[in-house]
Amino acid sequence: MTMAHQTAEMAANQTQKASAIDSFIARERARERRTHINNRLLATGFGLFVLAVWHISTETGLVHALIIPSPIDTLMATGRVMSASYFWPNVFVTLSEIMWGFAFGLSSGVLLGVSVAMFAVVRATIYPYLVALQAPPKIVLAPIFITWFGFDQPSKIAISAVMSFFPMFLNTLTGLASVDPNAVKLMRSLTAGRWQTFRYLLLPNALPIMMAGVKLCWTLAVLGVIVGEFVGASAGIGYLIYAMNFQLDIAGVFSLIILLSLFTVVVYQLIEWLESRIVFWQQL
């Protein structure tokens, strides 16, 4: 065999190998895609199945329309409710309650969490009480808050803030505490002060756990407002749900529940998107 011949053969071998690897990778990719599509199909199929069961059981009278309205009735009710004159004013009442409750719960949770984590005196003074208060269900406060703050928005905001405060507080505290001891040593060896350590190490280090707290805080802020409106209100989505339920307009109730869920999920997704921006290094 000549030298040129050998080289040519080696090159051919190499091309063969490369194409074998390429086709292997292509096959793996295709399999991943198939799995992905299959999963999507399964989820969609299950959703459609539930919808079909719902439709058939209500349309055939197996379940009375007063107990569960049919999907079509629910859809019609959604249109009816959304075009009613009372809808948007009530939506705005609830929305502003949620936003204020969320804002108060979030900010007080972060502030107290940071204070307890950073100041030994604050920790010794109030931490035991905050932990004790965290145990009972906060819903028990709803009737008292209505007595204290009245039927209008302030009572709902208060309930919402109290309910959403705890996850934010605890997650801030946990986040600030769960730091690599060597990282703290490093900051100390660089003669960093308390707030330098906070700014450059503790706070960014706490952000992933704090963002998980924000998501919990959000769902509880919504829950707090709706609970408050159930217990006593003259306006709002919770009030509408309560009133419609009383009038046996179950389709209306269903439509409101669906709209409220949609809104909560959309904001939740928004928070998740923000999270992926803020704690970008988690996804690297």
Binding site: D180, N182, K185, L190
Partner: peptide, 19 residues
Amino acid sequence: EAPRADIGMMFQTSVLFPW
């Protein structure tokens, strides 16, 4: 008496800040 800037420390783990 206290940590000083003219003394540097390195650890078994890199202790890099991931952000």
